[in-house]
């Protein structure tokens, strides 16, 4: 059993699901069984945004120590602003709006990669520098941009099938596809190879530079897309709407069982971790505990997870 868990990689993400289920059950008990399904439905809806940005962050982190995309929050905000102004409240412009948000992300990601390559600086520093510029652009662009999202988009973000948000179903399909990309494509395998040992990957014929570029672009494109979707969900653009995604994207990746030492990643864990974090909030709210304790517990949880996973080579 233990061997099977290890070999299939289930062990990596099992913890997040056990945590999510436990927290949900506790919530249900506290509330005497009321609202059990509603809690889960809400969690599945909110989890979408965390999971989408965390997917990009996960590919970045999987390429090894020092690789973290700090520009995600800024890109989320900018993507939201661009999408809303392209859509301009019109249902017909929803698709072009999303495409514009993705294109924005691709531009940011390429810029990140260009900084890493040209300035020979650690990715964290490169994405940090670019995040300042992108965030400023987003603030400037988004100021006074009080455009309501198109009705059809807003409807979509709240649509449900059998209590499950449609948005969630689509996102699950997407993450399944990304799981296939990670395991079954040359690109995905290249990411994992580089994360384990970039030099060995190069000597084994992996195109390290191209893989890095794709990875940073993918992360930023997903951030841009998430921004557009989140704006639709929350009824418009706000200037600090991306802020919560900085720490959250890393937290979801780490709790989901991806190794910050690189080379080990999984997608199911992202859903588990995102649900875990959201349901934890719900549980603590139900127990009448404030947001301070909630954050405190989140932090302790992250440290506990990494300490339990510990002993790996230093992930810088």
């Amino acid at each position: 059993m233990a061997a099977w868990l290890a070999r299939t990689g289930v062990r990596d993400w099992l913890f997040a699901y056990v945590g999510a289920v436990t927290v949900w059950l506790v919530t249900v008990v506290i509330a005497d069984g009321f609202g059990a399904m509603q809690t889960l439905t809400a969690g599945l809806g909110f989890a979408v945004f965390y999971v989408l940005v965390a997917t990009g962050q996960m590919f970045v982190i999987a390429t090894g120590p020092g690789n973290i995309d700090l520009s995600i929050p800024a890109t989320v905000t900018l993507g939201a602003g661009v999408a809303m102004s392209v859509m301009a409240g019109s249902d017909a412009m929803i698709v072009p709006g999303f495409l514009a948000a993705i294109a924005t992300g691709i531009a940011v990601g390429s810029f990140n990669y260009a900084l890493i390559r040209a300035l020979r600086i650690p990715p964290i520093i490169a994405t940090l520098s670019s995040s300042f510029v992108v965030q400023s652009t987003a603030i400037w662009y988004g100021r006074g941009l009080s455009i309501k999202p198109p009705d059809a988009l807003q409807d979509f973000t709240f649509a449900r099938v059998l209590d499950v948000p449609v948005m969630t179903l689509v996102a699950v399909l997407f993450t399944m596809a990304m799981a296939v990309v990670l395991r079954r494509t040359v690109y995905g395998r290249s990411v994992l190879a580089i994360g384990q040992n970039p030099k060995a990957a190069h000597l084994a014929g992996v195109d390290v530079e191209r893989t890095r570029w794709v990875t940073y672009t993918l992360s930023a494109a997903l951030a841009g897309f998430t921004g557009a979707l989140f704006a639709g969900f929350s009824g418009g653009v706000s200037l600090d709407m991306g802020a919560q995604f900085l720490l959250a994207s890393i937290a979801v990746v780490v709790i989901g069982g991806t190794s910050v030492a690189g080379g080990r990643a999984n997608l199911p864990g992202l859903w588990g971790a995102a649900l875990f974090l959201f349901l934890l909030v719900t549980m603590l709210n139900a127990a009448g505990v404030g947001s301070g304790v909630r954050q405190l517990l989140t932090g302790v949880l992250i440290i506990a997870v990494i300490t339990a996973a510990g002993g790996e080579q230093r992930g810088r």
Binding site: R189, L192, A193, Q196, N197, L203, G263
Partner: peptide, 26 residues
């Protein structure tokens, strides 16, 4: 390229024997 310093330049420690053989041919 066949690396001599296996740990530093050759092996992907998290992968199976199978994937370590096939990586150059993916």
């Amino acid at each position: 390229f066949v690396a001599g310093d296996r740990q530093a330049d050759g092996v992907f420690p998290l992968w199976s024997i199978r994937d370590n053989i096939a990586v150059r041919s993916f």
